[in-house]
Write a protein that binds this DNA or RNA. Sequence first.
DNA 1: GGTTAGCACTCGACATCCCTAAGTGCTAAC
DNA 2: GTTAGCACTTAGGGATGTCGAGTGCTAACC
Lengths: 337, 337
Amino acid sequence: MSEPRKLEVLRAIVEDYVHSREPVGSKALVERHHLGVSSATIRNDMAALEDEGLITAPHTSAGRIPTDKGYRLFVDQISAVKPLSPAERRAIQSLLEGSDDLDDVLERTVRLLAQLTNQVAVVQYPHLSRAVVRHIEFVQLAPRKVLIVLIADSGKVEQRVVDVGQELSDDTLSALRTRFLAGVAGTALTMLPQYLAAVVAGCAPAERPAAVALSRALEALSHSSREDRMVLAGTANLARSNVDFPLSIGPVLEALEEQVVMLRLLSDMAQDPRGVAVSIGRENPYDGLAEASVVATGYGPDATAKIGILGPTRMDYPTTMAAVRAVARYLSRILGP
Amino acid sequence: MSEPRKLEVLRAIVEDYVHSREPVGSKALVERHHLGVSSATIRNDMAALEDEGLITAPHTSAGRIPTDKGYRLFVDQISAVKPLSPAERRAIQSLLEGSDDLDDVLERTVRLLAQLTNQVAVVQYPHLSRAVVRHIEFVQLAPRKVLIVLIADSGKVEQRVVDVGQELSDDTLSALRTRFLAGVAGTALTMLPQYLAAVVAGCAPAERPAAVALSRALEALSHSSREDRMVLAGTANLARSNVDFPLSIGPVLEALEEQVVMLRLLSDMAQDPRGVAVSIGRENPYDGLAEASVVATGYGPDATAKIGILGPTRMDYPTTMAAVRAVARYLSRILGP
DNA sequence: GGTTAGCACTCGACATCCCTAAGTGCTAAC
DNA sequence: GTTAGCACTTAGGGATGTCGAGTGCTAACC
């Protein structure tokens, strides 16, 4: 019983099962793939694979289906990520170019990825770490309420309303704005806290409370901001690909709604050398995703923000991984410098 | 055969069916509701109701279930919208107070509504019609690219990147900003186009192309902006309430993803005197929602923006309508002046 | 007239049984 | 290590039978 052939058999099982959605038997295997041996031999190999926990039989006399572990080995075996078809490349190109707003870009990207993979696509808002403060605006909304707008050079705009705790005249507010702006314009968002402290220190005591409130809000805006938000698309694909529900979509939808869960998951996924992280079935820390797999990767300058898809464990990993990686690259390029 | 009793029977059927998810028969009806007549009489009434197309029997010897028309009559019969339970009121109060950002408020609201009704909740971004321009900011991103930020007094911030078609020095841009700001600050967003035209007209020829580009972008921001976006929550409820899928959720998810479809639908729904619009099953213009109902209402100063829920036709209309209306009112109050 | 009891009738739901086809695991031969 | 052959297991599908819920009708009743 040769080890390489066993792997070949596993590969064949995964591919056939992903394609047919039905347990695959030894006979079908020798017919569809030219393995050069008889079905009996394959049966021996399959028995071995089952012993190793890589495949399993739903019932005594059915074919085998891959286990999570089997998919894992399969995925790890994929040496080179399959390149995209020219048509897909073109789709990516045309759909992503000519965008302006960050929201827009993310929205389009995630839709594209959903369509490309026929899965649910998820994208996390990019991190601001490298962004630089371009502008700050304070707008008085009510006697004590001020709208803060923070504009970063990447074209990102963050906003928040704060209660400054004291009434401010328009002039005072304007003066504060000027002071803050002078103090932090051009600094990296990550460095903001230090600079803000200096600005606050330089304020007149009368304005101190307001300055502190504003400074806090700015700081909060700078790092938390939208990084903990995500955009998703293609939920309908969940229902479509699961007409014969091996994946009960309820828990998956719940997971998707719990953005915290998803973001955590995406962040925790270890990226492998090929640049794409895959988490299969019960490898997922979240129970609702026990029958789902996540394929994700980082994008942007630091590859810290994530983009990925979520689908049933029975998915076409090579194609999906290729799509995720390609879209992430295009997205990085668009958002890049 | 008394007419009032027939309606009473319809009401009972709807209530029982919504509650039990099973076709309801004449006998069960007389047992659960004290109608004061025998099951045979009820049978006669039911036959009449069936003739009128208000109820239908899934098969010869099963109980009856309401048709879309039956639900419609039932809903129209509800004279007063049932008030919320104190617990629900409290939930609304506590969850919606102390919010700052518009995005935040909408996000929380829609989650609340989804939780309250156990359905999918949808909220459209509010219209800007009454808003007034508070501030304008132009930020140079690249030689010809300018980020426009439009801040309205409601605390709403809109942004967009435009290609101004010519290179502008920082000074020129700053001058343009000042001119635009002077020209439009304090004007209602709906009036923006007129004022913009005047500003453009007053620009030096050299700056004209840029001014035109900026003006166009501002105008676009002012009316289109985000009104055509919506936030949704509770998709998982779709799966939960439909374990025995009378509602195939695929098409519904598709409809929800096609925001255009949903927004159109919400806008087209006629609001009735009770302040809540209901669209039942095939009344919906979109085929995918043939087995779904939408309960919606307007909110905000003009009640032009919509908030509502979407669920299976078999839903608890009175409670749902009450929840939608209550949440809409609270939301209006929060966003109000 | 509207209401009621009684009763025959209809069908879906469910259980049972049987058969078939697919696919395995084992053994013995190569 | 590979193969052919064969006994064995079992899900799935179809046919059949039974049960019970629920109807529609008719004839009696108030």
